[in-house]
Design a protein around this nucleic acid. Sequence first.
DNA 1: AAATAATACATAAGATTGTTATGCATGTAA
DNA 2: TTACATGCATAACAATCTTATGTATTATTT
Lengths: 111, 111
Amino acid sequence: MKSKNLFKGSLTTIILKLLEENGKMYGYEITQKVKELTEGKLQITEGALYPALHKLEADGLLDSELEQVDNRVRKYYKLTESGQKETIVKMQEMNLFVQTMQTLINPKWSF
Amino acid sequence: MKSKNLFKGSLTTIILKLLEENGKMYGYEITQKVKELTEGKLQITEGALYPALHKLEADGLLDSELEQVDNRVRKYYKLTESGQKETIVKMQEMNLFVQTMQTLINPKWSF
DNA sequence: AAATAATACATAAGATTGTTATGCATGTAA
DNA sequence: TTACATGCATAACAATCTTATGTATTATTT
């Protein structure tokens, strides 16, 4: 999350959503995908990503499996059933957050 | 911020925007205003608010002045010039954040 | 009358989540 | 051969928040 601090707290949501869309991904792939999708506006640092992935797995929201590709080991993650449910919850939370912020910071339509 | 962790990092933005709209406010008033505007969906805790206000003042974004009201002391805050500029920056950051999140989590219009 | 809630400020311990730095290992480009 | 890209991981530090606590006055309940 090499960005402004508004993104604090949204990393988990981003990870879950990307995995929901892409089925399975490995850590490095996630960092690249986010950079690509946001045109560099959001860069996830490894120091934030890997601990987050480990926590999600420890919480039972993700499964992981190692895969050998060209003498390199990739750790692929995918959503568990529990993770799929949580993804929906996180999306609702994100929508609520955006709505709530808009009621707080949007100039009132005073007319 | 007695809410979900997405709001982490947005407190400063909220404070600045409320002060921009209302001219001057005191701490307790801010907590009540936020609760009212969000229909209870967002509750700012005092343990988060007061340190945030102190930091904003220390950073020169806010001015404060004490006022006696019915044997009670209120500490009113208002934006400094620097604070007004920063408010604009924070608003831009918030807009960018929302846009960025939408590119990340919105289902692609695959048609 | 006494207890509780609301108003109004403040701080301190601890948790969470992030940054920055570092480490290991392989493959490719300068 | 030096740097960069790929790929994982952790540790020290910083920022921000929660929860708990403290003080003090006023209003409302019981």
